[in-house]
């Protein structure tokens, strides 16, 4: 559990993203990268086949939506899956740290497939989950190996470009140098 006010922290992300955040993938990966950049550490993440994921964050966001701290609307995507749109309500906690908000807004601008790839590469690097010798110290190789259906059409390059933008931001902790 993420602590006493996990649902409030989860809801706050929506305001930090500018009042709206599209998608559970974005929510998860944005918070993962923000924590990696030194903005908090309240949500523990583990690896799933869709990249770094926090059960606590997912559960806390569900509580926040249930209590009306954010509004969640689920829509069907053209590709057949479903995605959520989170919007702030009058009960959503305000953002407190402008630098963190700026980081979250920048991360939320990245398309969700690229964001998933970038968060995955960062996670693999952080946890040493790739073969440094074989892959030339490049976690993107393992990322591509794990997500062959998501790296085509220039997505891997877009993920690296998005990650580079985040790396250029001044953050409490430097994001890993993987691009």
């Amino acid at each position: 559990m993420s602590g006493y006010d996990g649902h409030m922290r989860a809801a706050r992300v929506v305001n930090e993203a500018g009042g709206m955040l599209v998608g559970r993938t974005r929510l998860q990966k944005v918070v993962y990268l923000a924590q990696l950049a030194g903005y908090g550490d309240e949500f523990p993440f583990e690896y799933k086949h869709y990249g770094p994921f926090s059960e606590d964050l997912a559960g806390d966001m569900e509580i926040a939506a249930g209590l009306g701290m954010v509004r969640e609307e689920e829509r069907r995507a053209d590709w057949g899956g479903r995605y959520s749109i989170y919007t702030a309500t009058e009960r959503t906690p305000s953002s407190e740290d402008p630098a963190r908000s700026a980081f979250i807004q920048a991360a939320a601008q990245i398309d969700p497939v690229a964001l998933e790839l970038a968060a995955t590469a960062a996670f693999l690097h952080e946890n040493g989950w790739y073969d440094r010798e074989k892959d030339g110290d490049d976690p993107w190789v393992e990322t591509a190996r794990r997500k062959p259906d998501k790296v085509g059409n220039g997505q891997l390059e877009r993920a690296k470009a998005g990650y580079k933008i985040l790396m250029a931001l001044k953050t409490p902790r430097q994001l890993p140098h993987i691009v």
């Binding site: 998608g23 590709w79 398309d111 062959p148 259906d149």
Partner: peptide, 13 residues
């Protein structure tokens, strides 16, 4: 089946 993330399509498996 198609794969994707949030609103965005990726490929199929």
């Amino acid at each position: 089946v198609n794969t994707g993330a949030d609103e965005m399509a990726a490929g199929s498996v």
